[in-house]
């Protein structure tokens, strides 16, 4: 019988990947893991392709048990991670024996935790991705009792009795500052906000409960559009900071519709979007103005750290004869 990861307590969890790339011309949002950095690192720690399917666990407690020996990694927001009741490290590969219970509880500071398994899961694909798309009705939240097909098993690679890890990989763990500082660059329509544009950087904004993977609404001293006139619908990037009306900012995230008619005041940076993927309702956010060059440098530095981690994983996995190649080729780009 095929091996499975059995979901005991689903909480709010979905099977995710990095997104549905190359389809925005057809009006499809990219979607995918909201904290891309943590999702990449979880897969890399398991020797998977960065874009392999993994679990995105939001806010609520979660537990599961594999029907075979597996290697997993848990990243993202701080949380209590236990295997059969014993506290285990996050941001490191972890051997879990057949029948043991992985429990993730007390998610705090941020709201999203990622769990990857060496070899990943069997999961349906649509338009080249397994990422849920709520509008298309594709992909669903996991439910208690679900069984996810596992592609691989992995013999234990820790001490047989004391369960001490045989290696430490020192993954790049992002800081979660309070209040959150989110980097943005100037948007193409900045000038339309005149003197009020600076308000974005002067005060804090509070994230409203009406926030999700499509966008985050934030209350505060919002900038005002000075220019008048209709804006023709056009493509808006993930990360666009808009001021639709009233006293709320709208910051578009990965589920955003590809076109909109509101002026774009600022654009959240690539690293800022991963942080924003961790921000929960009621939390406060400060925006920090960056040049495009600074933002690109920050993203490259983060990606280089992941590549360096990938090399360390390969070295360690080769030495321990852990099968690290992904079981399937996952389409990443068009």
């Amino acid at each position: 019988m095929a091996d499975t990861l059995n979901i005991l307590r689903a909480g709010m969890a979905t099977v995710q990947d990095l997104g549905r790339f190359g389809r925005s011309r057809y009006g499809l949002p990219v979607n995918g893991a909201l904290d891309q950095h943590s999702a990449r690192v979880a897969n890399v720690l398991c020797g998977n392709d960065e874009g392999a399917p993994l679990l995105e666990i939001t806010a609520l407690d979660f537990s599961c048990t594999p029907s075979t020996d597996v290697l997993v990694a848990v990243t993202g927001a701080p949380a209590d991670l236990t295997v059969d009741g014993v506290v285990r490290p996050r941001w490191e590969p972890l051997s879990v024996r057949s029948g043991e219970t992985i429990r993730i509880s007390g998610i705090r500071s941020g709201i999203r935790v990622y769990l990857a398994v060496l070899g990943s899961f069997d999961t349906p694909y649509l338009q080249g991705s397994c990422a849920p798309d709520t509008i298309l009705g594709f992909g669903r939240s996991l439910r208690d009792g679900d069984e996810l097909g596992l592609q691989r098993h992995c013999p234990p690679v820790d001490h047989p009795e004391y369960r001490i890890p045989l290696f430490r990989l020192r993954a790049p763990v992002p800081r979660l500052p309070t209040p959150w500082t989110i980097d943005v660059t100037d948007g193409p329509d900045l000038a339309e906000f005149g003197d009020t544009a600076d308000r974005l950087f002067r005060s804090e904004f509070t994230v409203s409960p009406q926030s999700n993977h499509i966008g985050l609404r934030m209350a505060g001293d919002v900038p005002r559009r000075v220019a008048t006139g209709e804006v023709l619908s056009r493509g808006v990037p993930v990360g666009a900071v808009e001021v639709p009306a009233g006293d709320e900012l709208l910051v578009l995230h990965r589920g955003r519709g590809v076109t909109a008619g509101y002026p774009v005041l600022a654009v959240v940076t690539a690293t800022g979007l991963s942080s924003l993927g961790q921000v929960g309702p009621g939390q406060t956010v400060r925006f920090r103005r960056r040049t495009v060059a600074e933002a690109v440098a920050a993203h490259r530095s983060q990606r280089n750290a992941v590549h360096a981690l990938q090399n360390r994983v390969r070295t360690v996995f080769d030495a321990l004869r852990i099968p690290s190649s992904p079981a399937r080729t996952v389409p990443v780009s068009p």
Binding site: R23, V30, R234, V292, A295, S333
Partner: peptide, 26 residues
């Protein structure tokens, strides 16, 4: 087929190109 490009959105009078700035550049 430029490497690193994630998506393009042509509309009425504008074309948005989104990419991974670690895999290509502006």
């Amino acid at each position: 087929r430029l490497a690193g490009v994630h998506g393009i959105v042509p509309t009425y009078d504008s074309l948005l190109v989104e990419f991974d700035c670690a895999d290509t550049d502006h």
